[in-house]
Nucleic acid binder design. Structure first.
Length: 282
DNA sequence: CACCATGTTCCTTG
DNA sequence: CCAAGGAACATGGT
């Protein structure tokens, strides 16, 4: 699930469920996802704490927690990596194969599962400090965005994945934003014109905002089946619907939605890029 | 067996 | 110190 829009949609969902709930038990099944925390430190901090809020920064979740008798919140940082999911599940539901951390919340469990274990759940907040501006906030401005791009000769697509430039854009929405802005992904970042910078700035915001809207409206399997109460995911059969809105990502060989010519796939920085060579100009 | 996958971090090299 | 390129992390799908 993991680019800014998916994290945002899930954060909004969990925000309705978590506040007020107390952590009565902590089961760390994959200590590596706590890095650099030790399981001991992690468990001691969380045990007995109560969720008070939840927000998002880039692709990170910021869980606000409070210890009993304390007036001060502390923050738990979450990241889904490539394959992570976080949801509440029934106490008696069988744990998923790749459960990384399970928090006992009384009536239900908070499950963080992650097939590849690239994600994190940690008290170490240092990763957030180096993030660039939030793309959907007023902190993200064309002028400063353009300034930052000037300092790099890297291909613009690769630059968009740099979380210190702008926080939350990943491999899917980088391709989508460049298609929308009609800019070739190979173009050097420092060679975009001012007009292109503005278009790209705007395209990033549009693409992310539309994805959040889509994720908020698409039928989600919040309730789940009998064994999986509170499970979060797309409702059955909705995966395609959710991906239809992507205009170029994973569409190599298909006709461009604007000109009809085939979408191409290239590899940049060891990752796939999808684009229309006809519509996206260098 | 080969290659691919929504991400980040570490290590080199220049 | 910085920019850039590549490998590593770990598992599963096709």
């Amino acid at each position: 699930m993991p680019e800014l829009p998916e994290v945002e949609v899930l954060a909004r969902h969990l925000q309705r469920l978590l506040p007020g709930k107390t952590i009565r038990g902590v089961d760390v099944r994959r200590p590596k996802v706590l890095r650099p925390d030790s399981p001991d430190h992690f468990c001691r901090a969380l045990l007995g704490a109560k969720f008070t809020g939840l927000s998002r920064r880039g692709k990170y979740f910021l869980f606000q927690l409070r210890r009993p008798k304390s007036r001060e919140d502390f923050t738990l940082l979450g990241h889904l990596g490539m394959t992570g999911r976080m949801y509440l599940a029934r106490k008696n539901a069988p744990l998923p194969k790749h459960a990384a951390v399970v928090l006992d919340l009384g009536r239900e469990n908070f499950i963080y599962e992650d097939t590849r274990y690239f994600g994190r759940l940690t008290l170490d907040l240092s990763a957030v400090a180096s993030l660039g501006p939030e793309p959907l906030s007023d902190d993200f401005q064309p002028a400063s965005f353009g300034q930052a791009l000037k300092r790099s000769a890297q291909a613009i697509k690769v630059k968009l994945l740099d979380q210190s430039l702008v926080a939350g854009v990943g491999n899917i929405y980088a391709s989508e934003a460049l298609f929308r802005a009609r800019i070739a992904p190979q173009r050097a970042a420092n060679r975009l014109t001012a007009a292109q910078v503005k278009n790209l700035w705007s395209a990033i915001r549009t693409v992310l905002a539309e994805a959040i809207d889509c994720g908020s409206t698409v039928p989600l399997n919040f309730a789940g089946g009998a064994d999986n109460l509170f499970y979060f995911g797309l409702a059955a059969g909705m995966e395609d619907y959710y991906e239809e809105r992507l205009l170029v990502y994973d569409r190599a060989g298909q006709g461009c939605s604007v000109c009809g010519r085939p979408i191409k796939r290239i590899v940049q920085a060891a990752r796939s890029t999808f684009f229309c060579p006809h519509c996206q100009k260098k």
